[in-house]
């Protein structure tokens, strides 16, 4: 086993990790405010990907326009779910909305199956995005590079928004103490809607990146990456954006190293391995790698 191979597996891990990181940021923002584990988050990615595919193949729209439309679609679906499945149950507690989000997830998967059939479909990005650059034997597509940079840029922007702006302060206040936030005159429904807009937009973008990497899509494609991104968020310290990104990279790298370096008899268990990593980390650091000691619940 040569170093180049290990190195390229590491890079593959970073590729996968940046997709997880992107999804995990969205998870973390919604969770931070509502303590809602939104299982439907991954399926919003699926909706976005099918939106792109239909607009490009059926209506012949240019890719950039379809991506824009997919973000809008993801936001609309996310907001409908919030309004119909989460908001009415908000007072009922976290367990109830968690079950409700599972229902939304199953609903979206089946809706996609009904509309687009359960068959896998090919998903090809234009060649200028899939072009492979060769860095001393390590190959990266233009899309991989864009994804990696996008994650960092989004992390920086969102961190700035949350730390420095009025709406960010309202988001942190809601995350800290919901009832007190209401007593300050904060319209918490606005804050929740903003969180869902951010989360769903990021889900749409990460769906595009995932589909571009796998080159095929199917109605169930979002669920497991969604779960892993949730693990990434928990692993990094849920509620912390930096933690979500770190968790995404750690999980992605761990998964690819496992897949690349272990004997082929056990590599099919890479999904299980990801969850084992989560359990092990939480045993040592119950609030995640960057999680605060007090108050954090995972």
């Amino acid at each position: 086993m040569d170093t180049l191979y290990v190195l390229s597996q590491l890079v593959n891990g970073l590729k996968l990790g940046s997709v997880y990181a992107m999804v995990a940021i969205g998870y973390s923002i919604v969770y931070g405010i509502l303590r809602l584990i939104n299982f439907a988050h991954g399926d919003i990615m699926t909706v976005a990907v099918y939106t792109i595919l239909s607009l490009v193949t059926i209506f012949g729209l240019p890719l950039w326009m379809s991506i824009g439309a997919s973000v809008v679609m993801a936001v609309v679906v996310g907001l409908i779910a919030e309004r119909t499945a989460y908001r009415p149950l908000r007072a009922a507690g976290e367990e109830t909305t968690l079950v409700s989000s599972l229902a939304v997830s199953i609903f979206l998967q089946n809706l996609m199956m009904m509309i687009f059939s359960p068959q896998r479909k090919a998903f090809h990005l234009p060649e200028n995005l899939t072009f492979l650059h060769n860095f001393n034997g390590i190959r990266l597509s233009t899309m991989n590079i864009i994804t990696f940079i996008a994650v960092i840029v989004i992390l920086v922007i969102l961190t700035f928004v949350i730390k420095r702006t009025r709406v960010g302060m309202a988001m942190r206040a809601c995350s800290d103490n919901m009832d007190a936030s209401r007593l300050m005159g904060i319209n918490i429904n606005h804050v929740v809607v903003i969180a869902f807009i951010i989360g769903s937009s990021l889900a749409a973008l990460s769906g595009l990146m995932l589909a571009g990497e796998y080159k095929t899509i199917d109605p169930m494609m979002g669920f497991v990456p969604g779960l892993k991104a949730f693990c990434a968020a928990v692993l990094g310290g849920i509620g912390s954006l930096g933690g979500a990104v770190l968790g995404g990279f750690v999980l992605g790298v761990a998964e690819m190293l496992f897949a690349g370096l272990m004997p082929t008899e056990i590599t099919p268990y890479r999904d299980a391995f990801v969850f084992v990593v989560l359990i092990l980390v939480l045993m040592v650091r119950p609030n995640g790698i960057l999680g605060s000691r007090e108050g954090g619940r995972s």
């Binding site: 009025r166 942190r172 206040a173 800290d176 007190a180 108050g295």
Partner: peptide, 21 residues
């Protein structure tokens, strides 16, 4: 409110800013 309900993870400054939201 009862039990003060301050924003315990935020600074005094931020708490006061939120009062003036």
């Amino acid at each position: 409110p009862e039990g003060r309900q301050i924003f315990s993870k935020m600074t005094i400054k931020e708490n006061l800013r939120l009062g003036a939201f």
